[in-house]
Amino acid sequence: MIEAINVSKSFNNHEVLKNISVKFEKGKTNLIIGQSGSGKTVLMKCLVGLFPIDKGSINFDGRSFSTISYEEKKKVRQEIGMLFQGGALFDSMNVEENVVFPLSMFTEMSNNEKIERANFCLKRVNLENVNKLFPSELSGGMKKRVAIARAISANPKYLFCDEPNSGLDPATSIVIDNLISEITQEYQITTVINTHDMNSVIEIGDKIAFIYKGNLWWEGDKNSILHTDNKEINDFVYATELTRRLKGK
C-alpha cells in the first residue's frame, strides 16, 4: 500500500497540490483521474520522490519514503517500475537493451535469461521482432509499449503509469489496460495509473481518485463513478456526446 498524507506541492508560489491524502492499495489498479493540468503528473512524481514535497509524508508499505536517506530511497526504488508520460526510453540503447537494463543493473541473471525475460515482456505488450530497433525508429505508441515492458521487466512491487494509453488506438489501449490489470492481480502489485481515458476508468478502475484543481475532490471506483451526483465528476465523465447519450439510456 502506498499512502500520501497531507501532501502539498507548489512551484514558485503556484500551489499545484493542496493537502492531498490518499491511499493506493496492493493488488489493485488505482487510478488518478482529472483534467489536463489538474496535477496528476506532479502527484505521481511526488509519490516516487522525483519532486520533493513541501508538506506531508509518503509511505510505501509503512516505510516513510519522504524522510529516508538517499541510499535507502534507492533500495525502495529498485522495487518501483515507472512509465513516464513521454516514455523516457534511453535513446542510446535499442529496444532490447532498454528492457534488459534494469535487470542488468540489479539482478544476477545470465544474458540468456535476461533476453528471455525481455522477450516475454515485449510479447505481453504485443511487440515482436523489434528488439534491435532504436527508439527513434519506433512509432509513438510503440515507444509507449516498450516503456511499459521496461517498467515491468524487473517484477516491480509498485508500478506507476503516467497515461499508459495516450497515443494508442482503442484496441491496443484495451490490451495495455488488461495487461496492467492482470499483472497487478497476478503479482499483487500496488499499481497507480494516471489517466483521463474514460474507457480505462470503466475497465480497470478498482479504485479511483479524482483530482480537481490540485485537490482530492472525490474517491470511489468504476461503479460508483457512474452514479455519483458530484458535479465536477459528472462534468468530467460526461464530457463527450457519446457518454451523455449512453447516460440518457
Binding site: L50, K74, R77, M82, G86, A88, L89, F106, A154, F160
Partner: peptide, 18 residues
C-alpha cells in the same frame, strides 16, 4: 541535457540508480 529534458534521467533515478 537531452536525457534530462526527455526524462531519461528521471527514469534512471526511479530505477534506483544514481
Amino acid at each position: 541535457g537531452t536525457m534530462r529534458v526527455t526524462e531519461q534521467i528521471d527514469a534512471l533515478e526511479i530505477m534506483g540508480i544514481n
